[in-house]
């Protein structure tokens, strides 16, 4: 094992020692400190990302709002047709809220996946904590999604919902979601370094993920779907699915990381407090995403310069 004790340098100079990359995690403490030290770099990169994608113009920004809105209307029509006209304004609000939340994660992962390979020359010429790159794209995605909340609110009020004190907790929810998104962005960024077409496959995977989340369908519908699969048929309305199977299904749906977030969002926007399960599962998923994504990223980031 190489010693990292410096043999040069006086008291007035910090000595950096580079030794062989043994595929281990770099010391997390100094890494995070270094990232904090360069937080302005992340912020500025996020701003440049927005600028490069024209999101700093009125129409560019508008597109980020209109895009989920239009898709929301498309899905609304589709589900309404499938259900034979049985949809209402409240369902549209549920749909839009879910889409906004899900698209935030989708965009963070999508832009995050190319963050490192797009770093190119910066990676080859400057030594800095590489996690700054997916952090910057996650921050950019966050800035992008702030205005969509106002659009959501418009539909929220139009559907007859009011302002509730629980909505004050939404920023906390978004903060946990941002941590989750950052972890997923580190994961997709690492995958893209090794497989450049990750970003081409990602949209399909994300779309399937969305269909399995309580976005288009409600939570109860998803639970029933899972229970039906477990039971090999039946329906809740007919009462031929055992209570225990429903119970099991309602737990299994939390294996989808988005379930907790979407359920908590629904609760908070409708004036309720989220269930304890919602809260602990979303915090757990956020922590897992950052730990696993961070581990993949940090143990490999010294190789990135060779591969971009």
């Amino acid at each position: 094992m190489s010693s990292t004790t410096p043999t040069i340098g006086g008291p007035d100079h910090d000595v950096t020692v580079h030794v062989a990359n043994d595929g281990r995690l770099p010391p997390v403490g100094p890494y995070v400190r270094d990232m904090w030290f360069r937080r302005r770099l992340a912020l500025h990169m996020a701003r440049s990302n927005l600028k490069a994608s024209n999101a700093d113009t009125v129409f560019g920004q508008l597109w980020h709002v209109i895009n989920p809105l239009l898709l929301g209307l498309v899905y609304f029509l589709m589900i309404t047709v499938l259900r034979g006209g049985d949809s209402d304004m409240q369902y549209l609000v549920h749909l839009l809220g879910g889409l906004f939340l899900f698209f935030y994660v989708r965009d963070a992962m999508g832009t995050g996946s190319t963050s490192v390979v797009a770093g190119g020359a910066l990676l080859l010429n400057t030594a800095f904590p590489r996690a700054i790159l997916p952090l910057a794209t996650t921050m950019a995605a966050t800035f992008n999604y702030l205005p969509t909340f106002l659009v959501y609110l418009a539909f929220h009020f139009a559907a007859g919902y009011g302002l509730y004190w629980t909505m004050l907790l939404l920023p906390a929810l978004w903060a946990v979601l941002a941590v989750f998104a950052f972890g997923m962005a580190m994961l997709s960024a690492t995958a893209t370094v090794y497989f450049r077409d990750t970003s081409s496959f990602l949209p399909y995977a994300l779309r399937i993920w969305m269909y399995l989340s309580p976005v288009l369908l409600t939570y109860d519908e998803i639970v029933e779907l899972v229970a039906k699969v477990l039971n090999g048929g039946g329906s809740v309305a007919d009462g031929n699915i055992p209570e225990s199977t429903l119970e099991l299904a309602s737990r299994l749906v939390y294996l989808n990381p988005m379930t907790g977030f979407l359920q908590a969002w629904n609760a908070l926007t409708l004036g309720r407090l989220p269930s304890f399960t919602d809260v602990w599962t979303m915090v757990l998923w956020a922590v897992l995403a950052v730990v696993i994504g961070g581990w993949f990223f940090l143990t490999r980031e010294r190789e990135f310069a060779f591969r971009v």
Binding site: G10, V15, T16, V17, H18, A20, L124, T126, A305, F306
Partner: peptide, 13 residues
């Protein structure tokens, strides 16, 4: 410190 060594060490003050 951009490319990691395979062996050996680099110290920079």
């Amino acid at each position: 410190g951009i490319l990691p060594p395979d062996e050996g060490r680099v110290e920079v003050a």
